[in-house]
Amino acid sequence: MEADGPEVRAYIAALVGMGAPVVPGPSGLAVPACGAAEVTAVARRLALRVLPERQRRAEPTPGLLGLARALVVDEHPSAPGWTVAERERLAGWVAVLIEHRGEDGVQELVRALNEGPAAAPGAD
């Protein structure tokens, strides 16, 4: 079984679908606190870079939305202060990033968020 293969993705999606309870404590994503718009802009920029040219719109795979919510969006230290709409918008971009880059995409997002203003949209 490959680490980023379909079997692993299906297993993680099943775990996410079980609805594990939220446990109080520090967030699992080691990034600075910031607004949802800032995080979404960075995720969007990174996701748009990896979309195939034939694909004009970012359409997240439904199965990856739960994974994106559970492992990235809900783990952001600022997530409790975001609206449902903000969280869903971010989850969509993170799902696209995961679909095309897997764990590397998440790590790239974490690095970009930790870089601060240099990672802002248009900074490239």
Rank of each mutant, 00 (worst) to 15 (best):
V106I: 12
W93R: 00
P121H: 15
V73Y: 01
G81H: 14
Q55R: 10
R45S: 05
A79F: 01
D104C: 05
Y11V: 15
G17K: 04
A47T: 04
E99S: 02
R54Y: 12
A41V: 07
L109V: 05
A30Y: 10
V106E: 07
P121E: 11
Q55D: 09
A47C: 05
G66S: 00
W82M: 06
E53P: 09
P80S: 11
E86D: 14
V72S: 03
E108T: 11
G122Y: 08
G92W: 02
L51G: 03
C34H: 15
A10S: 14
E86R: 04
I98N: 01
A13L: 10
V50L: 11
Q55N: 10
L46F: 03
G19K: 08
Q55H: 08
V39T: 13
W82T: 09
G19D: 11
G105D: 10
V72A: 01
A120N: 08
P60L: 14
V22W: 15
I98K: 07
G116C: 01
P77C: 01
E88Y: 00
G92D: 06
G66V: 03
E99P: 03
A36H: 08
R69F: 11
V106Y: 08
V110L: 10
A118F: 03
P77V: 07
V84D: 14
V50A: 12
P26A: 04
L65K: 02
C34D: 14
S27D: 10
R44T: 01
P117S: 04
R54Q: 11
Q107R: 14
M18F: 15
P117I: 11
L109Q: 05
I98P: 01
G17I: 05
E99I: 01
G81S: 15
G25S: 01
A91E: 01
G5F: 06
V110T: 12
